[in-house]
Design a protein around this nucleic acid. Sequence first.
DNA 1: CCATGTGGTTGTAATGTCGAACCATGTCGT
DNA 2: ACGACATGGTTCGACATTACAACCACATGG
Lengths: 143, 143
Amino acid sequence: MSSEASEFQEAVSRFVRALGLHQPDRTPCGVPIPTSEAHALGELARRGELRQVELVHRLRLEKSTTSRIVTQLARRGWVERAPAPDDGRGVLLRLTPAGLQAARQLAAARQARFGAALDRIPAEERQAVLRALILLTEAVDEP
Amino acid sequence: MSSEASEFQEAVSRFVRALGLHQPDRTPCGVPIPTSEAHALGELARRGELRQVELVHRLRLEKSTTSRIVTQLARRGWVERAPAPDDGRGVLLRLTPAGLQAARQLAAARQARFGAALDRIPAEERQAVLRALILLTEAVDEP
DNA sequence: CCATGTGGTTGTAATGTCGAACCATGTCGT
DNA sequence: ACGACATGGTTCGACATTACAACCACATGG
């Protein structure tokens, strides 16, 4: 239904704006690092190690951009580059202890922001909203 | 619940990435204009006229940035600046016919993108997903 | 063993955003 | 009425994120 699609456009626009995603050097949670770096940190925290090329796919960035982001994270002392064991070309990324701590702080900040948001959603709706968001992501993702 | 909040973080991150929102000079729908300009155009299309300061609030940008965006849109021949009738300081923005057409094309592109996404969501879920997105936006917006 | 493809890095350029300085106009208190 | 302050806009300078192209190293397949 076309009216449904335009309502979605609306809703997505508003969501993006409300989230404050246009600010380049600050995450939506207020942490003073770029959003992409935060996402990279998140991916690394979830898995312990990650191939850099995998990060390229997950962040949907160019390999050059990804390389720079990793350099930034390394400069902050949060990740270490190591040669990939099974492929001489590859780079294996690993979180340092400081990086793990930073990831935890970031998670806490997000917790604060999204936790507060969740409090404004009726408890019985939360599961539905989360499910909807996941569904929507899958739907948008699939090219 | 904290596990709920972290699932949300996950879900939001994924959504943002899947949407491709990190590309500065291309909308998620593939239209080759910056996201903020697209949003500005959308706001102007919905209301016919808009005070520039209103755009600042809706886009959540600095007034300087907003001014530049409006200049861009004017350069494209899509909006006209006029003095606000009730306030000598203000600027009233109005869509030109070309701007209206551009807005329609943009809407069509979004329609194509989000329509395709919606098709991948079971029909009986769509209302729930839309509702969830609106709820989530309000929840995130509030602070 | 050469041709081609993949993973990474660096250089270059384009672009989006903010903060500050500045101007014009409105508003409020005395 | 008049000065002090707030509001709406513009311009300028700085900074940051991203992509594309060129290049290198390693892998893979005929």
